[in-house]
Each structure stands twice: as structure tokens, then as C-alpha cells.
Amino acid sequence: MLIEMNNVFKTYLLGEVKVPALHAISLNIEDNEYVAIMGPSGSGKSTLMNILGCLDTPTTGTYYLARKDVGSLNDNQLSDIRNTRIGFVFQTFNLLPRSSALHNVELPLIYSGMPSFKRKQLAMDVLERVGLNDRMMHKSNELSGGERQRVAIARALINKPSLILADEPTGNLDSKTGEEIIEIMQRLYEQGNTIILVTHEEYIAKQTNRIIRLRDGIIESDEKV
């Protein structure tokens, strides 16, 4: 079992007011599943993804990632997990705008301490896999949205993660470029990766093999496609 979530609650504090974002979420995901998370805006999809991606921690409840209790880890250990086990793809790309595509992609390896020549080679390989071999030295703010998202995917892939999380990866793209990104996701799934994908599009969700629907922080339905 790659992911085991038990009775996870997440409550944000806005001053004195408690904003419940997740309510008693229990969820198991196996290796090499391709999961779509759907739900209306504000239903807690991003909150759930952030917890899955170890960017955030549950208010209560337990989360085991590859049998490790994430709640018991300190900040450094969480950073390590993000660095080596998780590849995160964001709706807004989240690249360093003034750095080259290559540098953006090799960044996780800098923090894991890989020597320069090795990580450059790896970064070039991954950029080639997402079809960006001719854009490596472009600064990321000189790239189109689709190209940026491919750089972001390359960055997510560089450390050979056990889990790829994509929070609305097509949300800022036109439908044609969005489809290209989804094709890459499909290919990654076929190559054996575990992917969790947030989307508003039914046709995208149909391509996965499991759809989890959230509403008001509760799992409304969870079914195989």
C-alpha cells in the first residue's frame, strides 16, 4: 500500500474562525494507480493534495506514505520526502522564472547533493522525455504555458518519485495543450508511476482508473472507472 490515510481532518484557522477544509478523510491508494480527484471549488482538493505531498500536515488523523507515518516526521525529514519520493506539478507551474529550464529541472538534485555533471545529464534526459530538448537553456519566463508545464513535469520526474501529484495541471492551459499534458501523464502511468491528478474535466477524469469526488471536505464517492 503506497498511501494510507485514516480519519484525516484539516481545519484552517482564520483569526478566531475555524475553516474546516477536510472532514474524516480515509483513503488507500496502491502502487501504480492513476487517480483523479474531482469536486467543486473549495471542496478541499488542493488541501488534500498538499497533505498527500507532505507540503502540509493533517490537523488530526494519520497519513502513512510507503508505511512511514508522515505525522511523526520533522521538517528536515519532510523535506527529504518531498525531495526524493514526491513529484509535484502545480496549476501555476511554480518554476523559477529567471532560471533556465535545465536549472529548474535539476534543482531537486541540487538539494539532494548530486554532483553537477551527473544532475545536468539527468535533467537533459528528462527534458528530452517531455519533448523539450531544444528549449533547455531558455529561461522559464520565455516559455509558453504548455512548455512551462512540461518543464514542471520534468522537474517532478527527475528524482524518480514513488508518487506524482498534479493539482489541476491543465487549469492554466488551453484545451489542446492540456491534452498534450494529459498524454504525458497517461504515458507516465503506463510506465509504472503512481499518479494522483486533480481536475475539473470529466473527459480527463475518464482516462484515469479511479475517480474520487470530494464535496465540503468529505469523500462523496470513490469508484473505479
Partner: peptide, 16 residues
């Protein structure tokens, strides 16, 4: 701030 967030999200430790 955002750059810091990005770096942390992909695995930079506080120390980095």
C-alpha cells in the same frame, strides 16, 4: 517568498 516556497516544495531544507 514564492521562490522560497518553490524551493521548499521540491525538497530544500530550512538550512538550504
Amino acid at each position: 517568498t514564492r521562490e522560497i516556497g518553490i524551493r521548499r516544495a521540491i525538497g530544500a531544507k530550512k538550512f538550504h
